[in-house]
Amino acid sequence: MEEIVRELFRANDHHVTARGDDLGTLQEKQQPEVLTVSCGDSRVLQDGMWDDRPPGHIFTHSNIGNRVRQRTESGTVVAGDVLYPLVHTGTETVLVVGHTGCGAVTAAYQSLTDGFTDRPGIEHCVRLLEDDLAEAVDSLPGDIAEENAVNRLVEYNVDRQIEHLCDSADVPEAVTAVGVVYDFHDVYSDKRGGAHLVNVDGQRGESALAAQYPELAERIRRLWVY
């Protein structure tokens, strides 16, 4: 344990050397181009998957299941962690990043099919996912393997989070909501670690997405077809 701490601080020395000058230009304010809402899974590198862009470009938020909502006394709303950059830093693009083999989606799927118990904080997060996935689970083929079910639900979950953003009056109209699945299980292609475009502002049609982003045609593929 002590060696891990030492190694982290040695790594921070490299960070200081590599990024200190970049940070000097950001001391007064931030205006990130993109907000990413990603699963907190350690295998999903929010900055790394975009080639380690310099500080100031990406406002990152992560949680289990890449959720955009939270429950409050007044009801379920888009989470403040998500809203902040959209409302206060001028960020107009939000990427919801799901990933293949998601443990949170797996837990929600198992809960909806077999039941689930865990510590209250974890249960709270899984229940939020259940709200979004229940209808989809009911429509899955009865003989589908769990692995395949989960990967379809990962995509469906991204769709639902995009829907919440597009439907919320709290999200500025100028914001574009983009849905992505990060693939390190070779589900979408053999480009391990590739990000695949599955949704833009609720548009899920492969041909329509390819027409909008022709240069990304090889990265546009859906498992869940409505």
Rank of each mutant, 00 (worst) to 15 (best):
3 E>N: 10
3 E>S: 11
4 I>Y: 11
7 E>P: 00
8 L>R: 14
9 F>Q: 08
10 R>L: 13
10 R>F: 09
10 R>D: 15
16 V>T: 12
16 V>C: 08
29 K>S: 15
32 P>W: 02
32 P>D: 02
33 E>R: 13
34 V>A: 03
35 L>P: 09
36 T>A: 15
37 V>S: 11
39 C>P: 06
40 G>F: 03
42 S>V: 07
45 L>N: 06
50 W>G: 03
51 D>A: 15
53 R>G: 04
55 P>T: 04
56 G>A: 06
56 G>M: 09
64 I>V: 13
68 V>A: 05
68 V>I: 05
69 R>Q: 10
75 G>P: 04
76 T>C: 04
76 T>V: 14
79 A>F: 04
79 A>I: 04
80 G>R: 12
80 G>W: 00
81 D>Q: 08
83 L>T: 11
84 Y>Q: 13
86 L>K: 13
87 V>F: 00
90 G>P: 07
93 T>K: 11
94 V>E: 11
95 L>K: 04
95 L>C: 11
96 V>I: 15
98 G>M: 10
98 G>Q: 12
99 H>V: 09
99 H>M: 04
111 S>R: 12
114 D>H: 10
115 G>D: 10
116 F>A: 02
121 G>P: 03
121 G>Y: 00
127 R>I: 08
128 L>Q: 13
128 L>N: 05
129 L>I: 14
131 D>A: 11
132 D>C: 03
132 D>F: 00
138 D>A: 15
139 S>G: 11
140 L>V: 05
141 P>M: 05
142 G>H: 12
142 G>L: 11
146 E>T: 14
151 N>I: 06
153 L>K: 08
153 L>G: 07
154 V>A: 09
154 V>C: 15
155 E>I: 04
156 Y>T: 06
156 Y>H: 14
158 V>I: 04
159 D>S: 01
162 I>P: 01
163 E>Q: 14
167 D>W: 01
169 A>N: 07
181 V>M: 07
181 V>G: 03
183 D>N: 09
185 H>D: 15
188 Y>P: 02
189 S>E: 06
189 S>F: 03
191 K>P: 00
193 G>K: 10
194 G>F: 02
196 H>I: 01
199 N>Y: 01
200 V>W: 03
200 V>C: 06
202 G>W: 07
202 G>V: 05
203 Q>S: 06
206 E>P: 00
208 A>I: 10
210 A>T: 13
212 Q>E: 12
214 P>Y: 11
215 E>A: 15
217 A>Q: 13
217 A>W: 01
220 I>R: 00
221 R>Q: 12
222 R>Q: 01
222 R>C: 02
